Amino acid sequence: MVRPASGGSTFLHLTLRAGTIMGDPTGRNDEGGEGSGTGDEADLSARLRRLDTRLGDVRSRRDRDVRAGSRAASDMSGLGKALRFSAEFIAGVIAGAGVGWALDQVAGTSPWGMIVGLVLGFCAGMLNIMRAAGELNRKPRSGRSPGDGRGGPDDGAR
């Protein structure tokens, strides 16, 4: 409804009944004492029970899928980590030895280039293992995101 105000300008005044705001699409809002009674409450209660059972089913399926996936992943995850770490280490040692051998061939410093290369390769292999282990530990262990409400020291909930 549009009404002119005292200053000569018009303001748009919308009158909303509480029923339309609170979710009563009919706008009755208990006017006349009829229309919303135990029938509406019973219908709402039945809908809430159905929703609760459906949510329970979805949660149980999700938990069952997560357990099955984590079991399958944990069976081979140890072996996979061991193979990755060993490959990282061996690659570093072999690369260092190869560079040291090549340096020995070019410079003519027979054992020293290979010795220094092996030591540097060992250090590089250990560094690669630490990087790979840190990378594996940073990944989340489940499908949930880190801030999904489980709680923790950095989630901001106090």
Rank of each mutant, 00 (worst) to 15 (best):
R50V: 02
A73F: 10
A46W: 02
D40V: 08
G80Q: 15
F89A: 03
R54G: 06
S74E: 13
E41S: 11
F89R: 03
Q105L: 14
L55V: 09
T109C: 03
R54V: 02
G78V: 08
F85Q: 11
D65K: 10
G80Y: 14
L48P: 00
S77N: 14
A87D: 10
P111T: 08
G96D: 00
A107D: 04
L83V: 13
R59A: 10
L44D: 01
R71W: 11
D52K: 04
I94R: 08
A68R: 14
L79V: 15
L83M: 14
D75Q: 15
R59S: 06
E88Y: 09
S86C: 09
D43R: 05
T109L: 05
R49A: 11
I94A: 14
S77M: 13
R47P: 00
K81V: 15
S60E: 09
L44M: 03
L44N: 03
D63A: 12
A68Y: 10
G100M: 02
S70P: 04
L103N: 05
R49D: 10
G96F: 00
I90V: 11
A72F: 11
A107L: 12
D43T: 08
D40H: 07
A42S: 07
R62S: 09
I90W: 08
G100E: 02
G39Q: 02
A91G: 07
D65H: 13
R71F: 13
E88P: 01
A107M: 10
A82P: 04
A91I: 04
L55P: 03
V99W: 00
D40Y: 06
G108V: 03
A82I: 10
G56W: 05
G96K: 00
D63F: 06
M76R: 13
R54K: 08
D43G: 05
R47N: 06
E41C: 11
G108W: 01
R67Q: 12
L103H: 11
I90F: 10
G69M: 12
R62Y: 03
A72C: 10
R50F: 02
A68T: 14
G80R: 15
T53R: 12
R84T: 11
D65L: 13
S60F: 09
R71C: 12
G39P: 00
A87N: 11
G92A: 07
D52R: 06
S70F: 11
A73Q: 12
R59C: 07
G108I: 03
S70K: 13
G69S: 15
D52G: 06
L55Y: 08
L79F: 15
L55N: 09
G78R: 10
R67N: 10
